[in-house]
Amino acid sequence: MGQGLWTKAKQAAAYGLSLIKCDGSEELLDKVRVIQADTLSLIQGGFTGGSTTSESSCEAVRLCCNVLVERLTALKEKLVEQMGSLRWETLILQAYVASVDLSASTLFLPDSTSSQYLNYGAAVSEVQVNLLTGETTTLRTDIIYDSGQSLNPAVDLGQIEGAYVQGIGFFMLEEYPTNSDGLVTANGTWSYKIPTMDTIRKQFNVEILNSGHHQKRVLSSKASGEPPLTLAVSVHCATRAAIVEARRQLASWSGFDKSNSEIFQLEVPATMAVVKERSGLDSVEKFLRWTMGTK
């Protein structure tokens, strides 16, 4: 919804006001302060959702800055003729003395087609499966994601990483068992497993791809907070591939037909118990019988 909203809004304000081209404009970012929106500071606002909040807010800020720059331009040109150079603080002081309106408001509502675009991304994951316990460890993940023209690559990078880790919880960990009444029986992290520090892979490489300008997207940016969650399916697929290899090996040990090794459904989430069962080693005794039989 509003990933890095305040940071991006500050950047948009600093950039928009810097177009007046005064000395010290490069320091405007430190002068911008964002306050919490309420009905006192903002009577009317747009909707939040679909990962469009940051983009829409930045566009509204940009439009307001354009209004202020237009009001200040004539005064700035006059002062430059008199003084030769002009600092931002001096311009604002003189504008205040001249009773120039230094406030602006804009209601920006994105067109319905602005969110009708495709998010492109790809992920490759390498996992290691403990066949005796069913524990799955992600060794490495490489992601490339199209953020359009990113408003803040550092913020979007964190959103991509966070969404991906949350997706691992969905595909691999977060099971919600229910009783006969349909009520969820998991009442804490002892039975409901969420991603932790251990979930983050040992090698995690993320690259942001900045695509070109698009007139229907807000500031040509693309959502980065929600879509990358689906890239975590690469961990689920890699786990399934590891299970297939384990089933083939077990079939060769026992003399069974290997052709059925790939015929199974790996549930979501693929918890430790599920992975252990699908691997075929549902007990240590069974594993020992197979290993002893190969000697």
Rank of each mutant, 00 (worst) to 15 (best):
G2P: 13
K10C: 14
Q11N: 15
Y15S: 12
L17Y: 06
L19T: 09
I20D: 10
S41F: 08
T48F: 06
E55Q: 13
E55D: 08
S57V: 07
C64K: 02
C65Y: 00
N66Q: 09
A74F: 09
K76H: 12
K78A: 15
L79M: 14
M83N: 15
L86F: 13
R87W: 13
A95M: 12
A104P: 04
L107K: 04
L107W: 00
F108S: 11
L109R: 09
S112N: 07
S114N: 11
Y117A: 09
N119Y: 14
G121Y: 14
A123N: 11
V124W: 14
V127M: 07
V129D: 07
E135K: 13
T141F: 00
T141I: 10
T141Y: 00
D142E: 12
I144V: 15
N152A: 07
P153W: 03
V155H: 00
G158E: 00
Q159S: 11
A163P: 08
F170L: 11
P177E: 06
V184Q: 07
T185C: 04
T189E: 06
Y192D: 06
M197L: 13
N210Y: 01
S211M: 10
S211R: 02
K216C: 10
R217A: 11
L219G: 12
S220R: 03
S220Y: 02
A223G: 15
E226M: 06
P227Y: 07
L229A: 07
C237F: 11
A242Q: 09
S254I: 11
F264K: 02
L266N: 03
V268T: 14
A270Q: 05
T271N: 01
A273C: 02
E277A: 12
R278K: 15
G280W: 03
V284Y: 13
F287G: 02
R289W: 12
